[in-house]
Write a protein that binds this DNA or RNA. Structure first.
Lengths: 368, 368
DNA sequence: TTGTCAATAAATCAATCCTGTTGACTAATG
DNA sequence: CATTAGTCAACAGGATTGATTTATTGACAA
């Protein structure tokens, strides 16, 4: 009865399905939604009325020119909900405010030698407070997502402080919305799934080449987390030679060979071309191997390659992976299509923000 | 209103969930079902009344001895529904009638040099007709499932007749129930999931060692088929050395080394022990490799090994796989538990019968 | 060229149905 | 008599159904 209906985030499965369809296919008229969901037109009328009232959908200009009554496409309301994303990296921590259609509205970042719990907490708390202050009271923040590499303490003794530090729980203290945390490579996959600009099948594997190689698995249009929240650990997949994917197809491996560390943006990658070419060739062999493994196991039609790497490198990596895959034996399976991701360096922070989005707005997202 | 309600096979998701719970956990009182499903006791009362009326559940003897009103456990009605399974093999075609609790009620088989479409059709049609004749008119046959290796024509030129032959469609002609067809290794997995006697997690990978090695994937308690119905093609997974799992861990490989073919039962496996030991060692390396790949990809806690092999061989294979897996690098993942399957040679035919069962009685099964 | 009307399609109204919940209640036991 | 299993009756939410309204294009006759 009161106006706090505006804060209702507990959408039904059918409401989620409608929002998800509009997110993926763009503005849709009610009739198309009825057809796509299998619900009756009447149900769509009721559900969309509620979604429009609550500010999640906008009703667009009527489309004329076809036989019959003109249709009114419904699109996502950009301010329908806002999401905070926090990305922890090796050199860089980022915080972003992302709107309902995936646009980054605020972005802050901080460089460091290595991340410390205190430093990250201070950066995040201060940044979040500043962002919250700047928002109108009617803004609806659904939650905070954190993208972080797992097992930070394996990076060296100076990272021991992370061992018993529960970043999500500590940040959740005092915040009026829930906090989610996932592996950074999984969030990159989530970002491609939810905000990605490429057309992707309902099932795909996502390979993300950053300091370490990692990945994500999407089945039936949903990011697979796994019973111990460790699915999509593609970096840990075994490859021939007694190694794992991340031993080969990681930027850290390239850095070792270059003898210097690469900056957290696309500048400064210029170096001996043959070293990079060699790294690409070896990485592609490994990527093709795990891509084919995933296909045999899951009947995946597409593999997406992305990473915190320059577009030209990503392109070369994808091309080389296609070539390498053609050389591998594939009796009994169809080799998957290899495509490039669309988000590059922004994938992980966008994916962090996508965690609360998926929880509240994607079908099957709310498990709590 | 009429009595043909007895033939209603279109159960709701909640009815399916109840049957699935009873199938996996054994007889359960209504209160336990309410607790497990999250439904209200009243809803369970209504749903179970309908399931009992329709002959899917039986109400057992009341259990006394605990505080409070005694409970009446509900169990699966063995005649709740019947299922036909047809298994195509290299030397043997089998047909079985399986009841609601997974008991084989009728079994017929025929040996051949190699399967031909005509021969299989004749065997199946005649066998099915005979079985149908012998049943009381009140029996309810839900469907026929077929377990067959894919790509039969790859076996040699004498198998070319299978190339354009749609066995499922041809058998469906004239049958009053639907026909399902899957890869034989996938059906073995389905059998373990639905009729298996071992306690398994909701997610596991199933490896089935028969003439060729194959497998199945279970996620969230459901057999994964894949968009092109080729998921669980574990035999096609690449392994080190430019080969695929089925090149190594197949009975056909062992037969080549023995220089003779092994019979379609557990007799006659006696041969040079060192040849079998060598085959087991190599196979275990390959099995461990793909098991670890699957775990990295999907966060699988358990791998089941089964096959058309003697129990002792299966045991040795599982043991060797555990040992081999301990040698593989597993940074960032937890090695899965390796367990033995419980169905051995009967897995594929039971799994064939489990296809219509899953379609009509498991949650999320009916997609048609 | 223009007026009229059938066909088509989008969307809604009102009534109803189905499925599940709620709260009060009965039953049987240690 | 506290505890647990189970049911009865009323009700609520979310969907469907079938009739109805609205807005348009396209064909055809004047």
């Amino acid at each position: 009865m009161l106006h706090d209906a505006r804060n209702r985030l507990d959408l039904s499965q059918n409401e989620r399905q409608i929002l998800s369809l509009v997110r993926r296919r763009g503005p849709l008229p009610r009739a198309a939604l009825a057809q796509a969901t299998g619900l009756s037109p009447q149900a769509i009328t009721n559900l969309t009325r509620k979604l429009i009232e609550n500010g999640f959908l906008d009703s667009g200009a009527v489309v004329r020119g076809k036989v019959g009554q003109p249709s009114t496409p419904l699109s996502l309301a950009p301010e329908g909900a806002l999401f905070l994303g926090l990305k922890l990296g090796r050199r860089l921590v980022e915080l972003a405010l992302v709107d309902f259609v995936g646009r980054i509205k605020v972005h802050r970042q901080e460089l460091y030698g290595h991340p410390t719990p205190d430093g990250v907490m201070t950066f995040a708390r201060h940044g979040i407070a500043t962002i919250l202050d700047s928002l109108s009271p009617s803004a609806r923040i659904a939650g905070l997502g954190i993208a972080t590499p797992f097992r930070l303490w394996d990076w060296g003794s100076e990272m021991a402080g992370w061992h018993d530090f529960d970043l999500a729980a500590r940040l959740a203290e005092g915040l009026p919305f829930p906090v989610f945390l996932e592996n950074d490579a999984s969030t990159a996959c989530a970002a491609e799934l939810i905000f990605g600009r490429s057309v992707l099948p309902r099932d795909f594997v996502h390979l993300y080449i950053a300091h370490f190689a990692g990945g994500g698995v999407v089945l039936d249009g949903r990011l697979r987390i796994g019973p111990r929240r460790n699915a999509g650990a593609l970096g840990s997949m075994p490859i021939p030679g007694g190694r794992q994917l991340l031993d080969v197809a990681s930027v850290s491996t390239l850095e070792e060979r270059l003898g210097r560390s690469l900056p957290p943006d696309d500048s400064g990658w210029q170096g001996p071309a043959e070293i990079e070419a060699q790294w690409i060739a070896e990485s592609a062999d490994a990527l093709a191997f795990v891509a084919l493994s995933a296909t045999a196991l899951l009947d995946i039609p597409a593999v997406v390659i992305d990473g915190a790497i320059p577009p030209a490198t990503r392109r070369a990596l994808a091309d080389a992976t296609r070539t390498a895959m053609a050389r591998l034996p594939a009796a009994g399976i169809d080799r998957p299509q290899v495509t490039e991701g669309s988000l590059a360096r922004s994938a992980r922070i966008l994916g962090a923000a996508a965690l609360p989005l998926a929880h509240f707005f994607e079908p099957g997202g709310a498990l709590a």
